[in-house]
Design a protein around this nucleic acid. Sequence first.
DNA 1: CATGAATGAGTATTCATTCAT
DNA 2: TATGAATGAATACTCATTCAT
Lengths: 197, 197, 197, 197
Amino acid sequence: MEDRMGQELPGKKKNLILEAAAEVFARRGFHGSTVEEIAQRAGVGKGTIYEYFSSKKDLFHQLITAVMEEMITDLRKRIDQAGEVQEKLRILVEEGLNHFQRLEQISKILMTEVKNARDEEIKEIFLQKHESIIGLISGVIEEGMKEGRFRQVDKLLAAQLFIGTLSSIIVSTTIYNRERKTSINAVLDLFLHGIST
Amino acid sequence: MEDRMGQELPGKKKNLILEAAAEVFARRGFHGSTVEEIAQRAGVGKGTIYEYFSSKKDLFHQLITAVMEEMITDLRKRIDQAGEVQEKLRILVEEGLNHFQRLEQISKILMTEVKNARDEEIKEIFLQKHESIIGLISGVIEEGMKEGRFRQVDKLLAAQLFIGTLSSIIVSTTIYNRERKTSINAVLDLFLHGIST
Amino acid sequence: MEDRMGQELPGKKKNLILEAAAEVFARRGFHGSTVEEIAQRAGVGKGTIYEYFSSKKDLFHQLITAVMEEMITDLRKRIDQAGEVQEKLRILVEEGLNHFQRLEQISKILMTEVKNARDEEIKEIFLQKHESIIGLISGVIEEGMKEGRFRQVDKLLAAQLFIGTLSSIIVSTTIYNRERKTSINAVLDLFLHGIST
Amino acid sequence: MEDRMGQELPGKKKNLILEAAAEVFARRGFHGSTVEEIAQRAGVGKGTIYEYFSSKKDLFHQLITAVMEEMITDLRKRIDQAGEVQEKLRILVEEGLNHFQRLEQISKILMTEVKNARDEEIKEIFLQKHESIIGLISGVIEEGMKEGRFRQVDKLLAAQLFIGTLSSIIVSTTIYNRERKTSINAVLDLFLHGIST
DNA sequence: CATGAATGAGTATTCATTCAT
DNA sequence: TATGAATGAATACTCATTCAT
């Protein structure tokens, strides 16, 4: 899978930078991150970043868009493959947890680091993508309600709560060093119990 | 209540600064905030901040400590005043939402803006306080389990989920402009349904 | 005339910076000058410049405006004090030569360093001021034509030529190390001979 | 006249670059110009410039030398072809104006953009060439004095003034959008009137 | 020869912190 | 105490120059 004889995959370097940026921005936030560190982590020179992105802000912007796009596509695929709604939710959690973790991180950065109109614009784009994901989850919940498996609830709020639930899993595993499997089961049990008839 | 003839209540100016800092840090994160803006919002000179705090980091540190301390004290008082466990949870939500919102904001800042060992230290202090609050909530849940009102669940995880639940309320009211009362009822219903026998 | 006991004249530091900037910009052009060097020559810290000017471009802008303003005021005063038109021209040269040297330098910088729309704007302001000076000189020439001392010529072109003439004096003294007095007399003689009846 | 089948005239690409450089340096000065823009305007790759010139500074250096050399050769030829001295001066102006415009631009750049000893060296070379041109003009003036057509004046200063006069024409046509022919006649009339017996 | 992707030295600008008043 | 003018370390960004293809 590696490039042979110095032949590079197209866009390889850009992806290297995006991956490095994801890592650094997640750890330090936007203002706390330096282009220098992103470059070092990507293994490229500082100037190279500006070959692919017009500014630090543009890099952040493209990163968010790419991550959200990938998340939506992947989650949609997984949901369509699954059978029952309860199974769909479980799969969403188990397979989508990494995605949601990134959603959390981006959300955190965006919600606490607004400086000007341009930032609001980026925030707006994020919220649009975020709504897509909420819509995706609320679709599953609606399906469950139609099948009579779930109680009649506000599906958007329930979807929102579902993400809050995932957030709990992420926090409990990250901060408290819990085993992920245990957390998933316990938290999902509580959520499903809450929503089921 | 106002100070007369320039006579100031002790610590009044320090509190002004802390309040201003809470506001600014919440909106811009740590690196995105400037001492200048905090000073202006507090209505004091930039140098004055350094009369009460040794550095921007120290201000942030003291802010977190103060906010958490106040939160724990207030929540403990409200819980002790309430009667049944379900009522305790409802009161925790209704009365404690502002506290939790601040908890969210601080958590976001801390989790995404780590630069060095000193930051980790601050993070550690925050986590200790955070655990106090988790303990406080898990205490209520344990009480409910003993009374047979709640199912036998992992009380720490449930407490964690409870905060995730509150997070949902905050997000749905903030981002989606939902009415707070409706969100509270719907989300609390789901949580209680999930945890009850 | 010096400030006593550390008491500073108002705007003193801003003027220090403007003087240093005049010197550096004249020698190196806009792009060739560094804020660092201007700061050092002004004997202030780099950051101090940004206390008085919002950007390097703003410093340049304010410098041009200030220099042109001073030049126009001073030249107008000298002309009004003089008697005959030929005397006026001589005085304009002798007393105004330093001003014109600065006019030359600024003009050179402006005419060769245009990068964007903002630059065109600055250039426009300069041209307005430049026209004021042309108008001032052409006024003297018109006066001379009315008195019958000068031939009927295109007064604006003649004024333009007068500045070209001064430029010659400046170049011949600066580059060829000529004595200023000799250059003034010789060149002025040629100009007056050319314009007189 | 076009190259056929990719076969290029020797030095053709080098000339393309020199022409592009002349244009860009004239518009933006030395520090304001980028190698990138020069390459684009020349229709070659950025790296190609370094095939013909060792550095940006070297390109500038060679450009000045080439322009001055061409100017001197061409002006000498035109002067030798003309008859009377007054006619020589007129021809110098009419035919040499484009050359003098470039002289002006290069002079402006050189006089305002000195950074180090190396620059002084380039400036020195320019001054030598400049003196050749002054000598060329002062030769014509001397000729006129010998013929009794011109007054006895400092021929070097007069030559200097002649270039200042041309500068006026260039400025009045460039900045004030005057018709070139009118400016030439008016300014030349003043100069000749000034120098003639 | 020709190219342009990659690079890092160099610069404008910001902002936490100090200190004279 | 309280202040804000002054500062320079830190950082985003540019661009001359190199070098693999």
